[in-house]
Design a protein around this nucleic acid. Structure first.
Length: 452
RNA sequence: GGCCACGUGGCGGAAUGGUUACGCAGAGGAUUGCAAAUCCUUCCAUCCCAGUUCGAUUCUGGGCGUGGCCUCCA
């Protein structure tokens, strides 16, 4: 198996050959959720995309050679706001959302990351990093706030391809009276008495956003590592600030070598936003749509492209999987050929890979056992058809109003009517079943049925 | 205003300096009491204008259009 991999790197704005720091293992950090509200379909995309990348890296480098870190940010102003608004304690809120998030991950069939650190468990590390930045003259303290001094870091703006003048010209940067420069961002800020806070050399307070990722990536992956992923919207300022903090605190030239960013999900061609009310949460979706369907839908376009979430997409994905599940069998997986894996190795080209799955399905449905093994192994490579056929059907069954006895009765009645030539009655019985989400198929010797 | 991405058939969506995937939908056929499913066959596309080239959808320049970022956001 060749390990050739190419990624589009946001840092260079072009596709590059992937070379890990250590040639037989890989470290990857992906920005996880801030647990202030239920994760939605837009949050699901990076989960599935980077899970697919994680699976690919494990295939190429070996299961134990890939370290995947995905954080949970459980201290942030948004959490404090949400807690106040919903009159829930911080603890209750963050625990509820974290639990829901974990259910979502399972629903989407994402593997557990190697580490899933929480920000609140690394406050000490954050304080150390802030101290380091102060010591290195990359930060300054003012009235219990500590700010990062952007002008002290020459490479600032490299990732997002911005320069300081442009940013200031935008002039929508929040200007705090305690900042020396409008571009500076907060590393530590004081907390009100009733808000979460930790003792620090600068008084009781809490970390600024961005800091947790710098600290936790260092702890689990080192000062420099291979891949950093997240949504496109995190490029600026979040990832830009992470780079600045980490490089300055650690005195390193680089932070992550490859930056991968996924595109947005729109909803019926519209931007998702709370005010429009078109946010689909994953847990809401899970009531009606199988997680496999969501996963396939999310992988149906290239991760960097925008993806529109709509009924048609769900329907198409569902139909495809219905078809594919006809080939389902419990099998021993086999190693995939270079030819099959190639699309994934070219910047995780999942649409091309899925096209290949269609062709493998074709071979499988008219071929022998070995073609089937190949098809199923290829599906499972990207986390599809891992759920068995039974539970695939059970999901649909659970949504149906009618049970098997009812269905079998109707089929029996219908077949009797057919025998007598009473096709009008037979058709109305079929229609009745169809209205209840059951499709009938007359095969040579018997009538089979399935849930829609 | 600055920066970036994108514009492929009816829809979704890849790739490519020469023969343009794949899925859905459509058409025709086999099969069927009729359907469904399946199988076979089949139609349909590279935003516009220049340039480079023997040849561009692909490269370059310009135009038009769409979206994103510059502020919390996956």
């Amino acid at each position: 198996m060749n390990k050739n991999l190419n990624f589009f790197n946001t840092l260079s704005n072009k596709k590059e050959k992937f070379t890990p720091i250590n040639n037989n293992k890989v470290g990857m950090y992906v920005c996880g959720p801030t647990v202030y509200d239920f994760p939605h379909i837009g949050n699901a995309r990076p989960l599935v995309v980077f899970d697919t990348l994680f699976r690919l890296l494990r295939t190429l480098y070996g299961k134990n050679k890939v370290t995947y870190v995905r954080n949970i940010t459980d201290i942030d102003d948004k959490i404090i706001e949400s807690s106040k608004k919903n009159k829930k304690s911080i603890k209750e809120l963050t625990e509820t959302i974290t639990k829901s998030f974990h259910q979502d991950c399972k629903y989407l069939n994402c593997l557990n990351p190697t580490f899933e650190p929480k920000a609140t468990e690394h406050i000490k590390g954050m304080i150390n990093m802030v101290s380091n930045l102060l010591k290195n003259n990359h930060a300054y303290e003012n009235k219990k706030h500590v700010y990062f001094s952007v002008s002290s870091f020459k490479k600032y703006g490299k990732l997002s391809n911005k320069n300081s003048e442009q940013l200031v010209a935008g002039s929508r940067v929040e200007v705090s009276k305690y900042k020396k420069d409008p571009l500076d961002f907060v590393l530590w800020k004081p907390s009100d008495e009733n808000d979460p806070g930790w003792d620090s050399p600068w008084g009781r307070g809490r970390p600024g956003w961005h800091l947790e990722c710098s600290v936790m990536s260092e702890k689990f992956l080192g000062k420099q590592f291979d891949i950093h992923g997240g949504g496109l919207d995190l490029v600026f300022p979040h990832h830009e600030n992470e780079i600045a903090q980490s490089c300055c605190a650690n005195k390193t030239e680089n932070f992550a070598n490859y930056w991968l960013h996924n595109g947005f999900v729109t909803f019926d061609k519209e931007k998702m936003s709370k005010s429009v009310g078109n946010i689909v949460t994953i847990n809401k979706l899970s009531e009606n749509v199988n997680g496999q369907v969501v996963r396939l839908a999310l992988l149906s376009s290239h991760y960097k492209q925008p993806l529109d979430w709509n009924e048609q997409l769900i329907k198409d994905s569902q139909n495809t999987l219905d078809k594919w599940y006809e080939q389902f069998e419990k099998i021993n997986l086999e190693e995939l050929s270079d030819d099959v894996l190639k699309p994934l190795q070219e910047d995780l080209n999942t649409p091309e890979y899925i096209a290949k799955l269609h062709s493998l399905f074709e071979d499988s449905s008219k071929g022998n056992k070995s073609a089937k093994v190949k098809f199923l192994s290829a599906c499972q490579q990207i986390g599809l058809l891992e759920e068995d056929k039974q539970s695939w059907n059970n999901f649909k069954k659970a949504k149906s109003k009618v049970d098997e006895n009812f269905i079998n009765e109707k089929i029996k009645d219908r077949n009797e009517a057919r025998k007598k030539g009473n096709y009008k009655l037979a058709d109305s019985l079929r229609k009745e079943l169809d209205d209840n989400g059951v499709i009938i198929e007359d095969k040579q010797e018997k009538t089979t049925w399935k849930y829609k």
